[in-house]
Each structure stands twice: as C-alpha cells, then as structure tokens.
Design a protein around this nucleic acid. Structure first.
Length: 360
DNA sequence: CTCCGGACGT
DNA sequence: ACGTCCGGAG
C-alpha cells in the first residue's frame, strides 16, 4: 500500500532532517499559535527573529493582551500583512476577557479565532493537543499532488476538498503531530517548488510525478494568472524599399523575433485616434518630414497567456534622399534597414504578420 | 520583473 | 470566485 510506504518513509526522513526550531520544543498553545501566525506567508528564516522578539516582550497570552496595540505593531514592523498583528492582539484580549484565559483546545474552537483559518487551526490542534487533523498548506499540496498524482486544481473549492480528504486519510492516529511536521518540512526542504533533487528523494521509487514526468506541472494551480494590458504604438518606417526593424533582446515577450520601433503606453487613449500633428516622433525623424498614414481605426488586439496587447501602427514613408540620415539614426538605436524579401524571411510576432497582411 | 503564500472581505 | 494584504527570493 502506497499510504504506508509514504508515511513510513516520511516519518523516517523527518527526525534525520528536521530543523531545530524553538516552537517545535513545546506544546504550549500560545507559543505554537504565535509561531504559526508569524509563519503565515512567511519563511522560517524571516520569521525567526520576530518570534524571539515576541516571546521576549510578550511571554504569555496575558502579556500580549495587556500590551498596547502600538507596541505589538512596532514589534511586527517589517514582517508584512499587518492585520496578522492586529488579529493577534484581538485574539489575546478575547481569550483573556471572554474565555476566562483558557486557550481554545480543539480544531473547531481554534477556527473561531480571528486570523486562524483551516491550516492554522489544524496546526495548533495537532501540535499542542495531538488532535488527529491534517494540515494542508502549500507544502502539503505539493508533496501530495506529486507523490499521489492528484491533479485537481488546488485553487478550486473541489481541489481543496480533495486534498483535505486525502491528507486526513493518510494522517496516523498515534503521531498526527509528527506526521504534520514531517510532511511540511519535507515540502520545505526536499520536495521544493523548483528543481527538487528527486534522485536523492526517499520517496522517489514510487513518486507518481517523478515516474510520469510531472514534477514541474504538479500541483495544478489554475489561479487566474492576472492578465495585464499593454498598449503599443508601432512605427512602421519605410524608405526606398526598405523597412526599419529591430530584434527583441530585452527580457520581455518575443525574444529573438523581429518587430518595429515602438512606444509603449499605459492606456488605450494614448494609442487610439492618433493625431499626426502631435505624434511624438523622435526628433531626428521629425526633421525628415515623412508622410504618415495612421493605420486602421481600431488598435489590433493580441492575446498571450498573461498579456493582452493593443497595438496601433503608424506608417511613415520617407523620401529616398533621406536614406543616409535615416540609416544613421537606425544604427544609433540598434535598428536595421531590411528589404521586403528579407523582412518576409525574418521571424516576426503574429501581431506584426497580421498587420503586414492586412496592409498588403 | 515574477513567483509564492493563508485568511478574510467582498 | 476574486481581490487584497506584504516582503523576500530568484
């Protein structure tokens, strides 16, 4: 059974590889709660100094409840997500004043605390009280999805449910705390997001992702990659049968392909209804008094996975007498002049091809 | 620059 | 279901 293989290897790996962290030496729920809040969205290395500062200044939930909010926020300074600090204070006061100083001692009651969600409640319940409830954090999604090949989308409700179900089927009843620590530590140290060292992984003989080449694709996270809009104004410059092009080298889309000189703007208004008289051309070009035609009514729309590009084209035609001057300008900008057949033969983004096809 | 990540407010 | 909160690593 792969469940047994999985847990046994994980629980063997953990004591040999675990980091010594102060909150792992206690079952004091206050200390565990504090550490878990600090570690939300935060790496251990970054959170550690804050943990020590908090334990020194506020050694108990009473001390934290009594402290002025200002002092708590000052101690939190630099950690980010400051609502975590405000929630910490609100919880401490609520525990002292409304719960007779008794720290919630089970998953369900822990969930009631502000800033304590399913992950944090499970962590405290298992570490402080050995409740058999599985933690599901980013590490757990990664480890379970890769080992078992569970490929449901972790950003969907369905996906979260599926992973919670699997995790709770695996968690052993006698050492739920060790198991929870082990799987998260394993995700943090061995089964890392990028370039994990699978050759020396204790689970590699039965890892679904490794066997099927899915290490880089799991876990599946369809979380909407936010699509950003960009607005390009292209200059299609022609002279004596030649066109000015440039090779895209910058760290951006279309690396190595060829397109035209362009200005990028941050809004649609800048690239529609271009006024030839106020067009902001490089000065050197302005002096050559080109003819221009502004292409098409509506900007072209070009979609990539993570970008939505709107592009307008300005066609500038220069008389042949200006060729030397134009060449000099192009050279200074690292652009080049190419003939029609040469342009045809170069690799161009679809967007540029569409524009050229429409034009000719 | 992009990616990563728990909880909460909408 | 989606945006917001934040900083660090790469």
């Amino acid at each position: 059974m792969n469940f047994n293989y999985f847990t046994e290897n994980l629980l063997r790996w953990y004591p040999l590889n675990r980091r010594d962290l102060p909150w792992r030496e206690t079952r004091n729920p206050y200390i565990i709660w504090l550490s878990e809040i600090i570690l939300q969205q935060t790496r251990v290395a970054q959170g550690l100094p804050y943990f020590h500062a908090f334990i020194n200044k506020f050694p108990s939930v009473q001390a934290l409840a009594k402290a002025p909010e200002e002092e708590i926020l000052r101690t939190w300074q630099g950690l980010g997500y400051y609502s975590r600090a405000r929630n910490l204070h609100a919880c401490a006061k609520s525990i002292i004043h409304e719960k007779n100083g008794k720290f919630p001692d089970n998953y369900k009651d822990l969930l009631e605390l502000k800033g304590v969600g399913p992950y944090t409640a499970a962590a405290i319940a298992s570490f402080a009280y050995k409740e058999q409830i599985a933690v599901v954090d980013g590490n757990v999604y990664r480890v379970l999805s890769r080992f078992f090949g569970l490929d449901v989308d972790i950003s969907s409700h369905q996906g979260k449910k599926a992973f919670g179900k699997l995790a709770n089927e695996i968690i052993p009843e006698n050492t739920p705390d060790e198991y929870n620590q082990a799987i998260m530590e394993f995700g943090a140290l061995q089964c890392v997001p990028k370039n994990p060292n699978c050759q020396q992984c204790p689970l590699h003989t039965r890892c679904h992702a490794l066997q099927n080449g899915l290490v880089e694709t799991l876990p599946v996270n369809e979380k909407k990659i936010k699509v950003k809009s960009r607005y390009f104004l292209y200059f299609h410059i022609q002279i004596d049968g030649h066109t000015v092009v440039r090779t895209r080298n910058e760290k951006d889309i279309w690396q190595g392909l060829v397109d035209f000189p362009l200005s990028e703007y941050s809004s649609m208004e800048s690239i529609e209804n271009i006024d030839p008289d106020t067009l902001d051309l490089p000065e050197e070009l302005q002096l050559l008094r080109p003819n221009y035609t502004i292409s098409s009514e509506k900007p072209f729309k070009h979609l990539l996975t993570h970008q939505r590009i709107f592009a307008s084209f300005v066609n500038l035609k220069f008389g042949a007498i200006h060729k030397a001057a134009l060449e000099k300008w192009a050279q200074s900008k690292n652009y080049s002049l190419v003939t029609e057949p040469r342009l045809e033969s170069l690799g161009k983004p679809k967007l540029i091809v569409r524009y050229l096809n429409q034009k000719y």
